[in-house]
Design a protein around this nucleic acid. Structure first.
Lengths: 223, 223
DNA sequence: ATTGAAAGACTGTCAGACAATCCTGTTGAC
DNA sequence: GTCAACAGGATTGTCTGACAGTCTTTCAAT
């Protein structure tokens, strides 16, 4: 991991740009679940050709952010509660492991980074900006996963979180969820800062279980 | 293009067909690691147009089976030992969990299926057909993962296994590895059959650790 | 041997086209 | 009036052809 001096910056292609834009649009909830994505419309909106768009859609399909049914085209999958539960369970498995490992190996510098993420979330939690809450919370997890020493763990986790980010915005907007979430995250941070693996695992597990419960609640209420 | 006689029940598109063919080709080791995949050549070999091929390549890229660097095109990634280790670790996390859950919830019918997979591997282990060994072993895992009650766990696991299938063929061909692998798998099976969650987890963990060690050995020797 | 420039190969991207398939509203039969 | 066949439009799946940008290799000049 040599820092800097990597002059070979890969150029951003239209397809990458398109993937990013679409992913962000999906995260933002612009497309309601179940809605279909018409190629010609997206081409016009994004200003790209159909082949480029279709490549981007294939990438998103492989990420499970959209579904593509032959002869019916792409659509936003309507995530059932069973699927969301399944994702939360795997996420728990990964996050608990990551938090534990992170506690053992994080550097002082990265620990500071983690604290900054936590403070950013604290600020967002006080506001009503649920998008900011989700983003800063994602930063927090991302730092943990990025310091667990296993890039594959990080990668898989990112994919799973992406698929339920839609839920997180809603559950975060539950009354008081952001505040209790903050408390749980602080607990995780303290454990990691203390280098206490077991405590980190425990706190992480608790956090996940509560997040899952909040997501369930928000889904039952609002769906 | 292709003559009639298409009694397809579910419409299989050229794109899907292409993905499957390429995936199989990669598994078979036709493309050596690091080799580049030239679009025009693949188009000619597969008999598809460039747009269709490129869509297929994007799918495979998202599966991490190939890498696509802008302006350099797709290539087979050369898996480093660090990456393989990372995959094995996550795989362990998932498989141990799956084995444990499977022990608690598998049906008699599926248990019989699992036994058949085990016997098939037993037959393959006696032969020298390492491809058959990998295939039957994959069946065994697949049955376990398919009965763990969490489709996401299964899906993520499948993706990871695909990425290291290349290794497995080589490590399986180590002297005696297939036989000891068989013993470990039988142990897993017995634990699941007995409905003993803890034993299943333990056996599964042991199996994975040994498989990882064998993979490492084969890599150090043959790379 | 080193350097630099030209040539070739390949990818990234687009436009346009056409057949197959799906969806929808209308018509016709009972 | 209800239901089924049907015609029409909308949309996707796929191909061909094209061209500019970028990488790699070759070859000549110093």
């Amino acid at each position: 991991m040599t820092p800097g001096l990597n002059l070979r910056i890969s150029p951003r292609t239209v397809q990458q740009e398109t993937v990013d834009k679409l992913r962000f649009a999906i995260f933002s909830g612009i497309f309601p679940p179940g809605s279909r994505l018409v190629e010609s419309q997206l081409c016009a909106q994004l200003g790209v050709s159909r082949p480029s768009l279709r490549e981007a859609l294939r990438s998103l399909e492989a990420e499970r952010l959209i579904e593509i049914v032959p002869n019916r085209g792409p659509s936003i999958p309507a995530l059932s509660w069973e699927e969301a539960t399944a994702i939360y369970e795997v996420r728990e498995l990964l996050e608990v492991e990551a938090a534990g490992r992170c506690a053992l190996r994080i550097s002082a510098e990265q620990l500071h980074e983690l604290e900054k993420s936590l403070l950013a979330f604290e600020a967002a939690a006080s506001s009503n900006d649920s998008l900011a809450q989700v983003m800063t919370a994602a930063d927090f997890y991302s730092t943990i996963l990025g310091n667990c020493g296993n890039p594959v763990l990080e990668e898989v986790h990112r994919g799973l979180v992406a698929r339920i980010s839609f839920f997180r915005g809603r559950s975060m907007s539950l009354e008081g969820r952001a505040q209790s979430s903050l408390a749980e995250m602080r607990e995780i941070f303290e454990a990691i800062a203390a280098g206490d693996e077991k405590a980190a695992r425990k706190a992480s597990k608790k956090h996940l279980l509560r997040a899952k419960a909040a997501a369930k609640k928000s889904m039952e209420g609002g769906a």
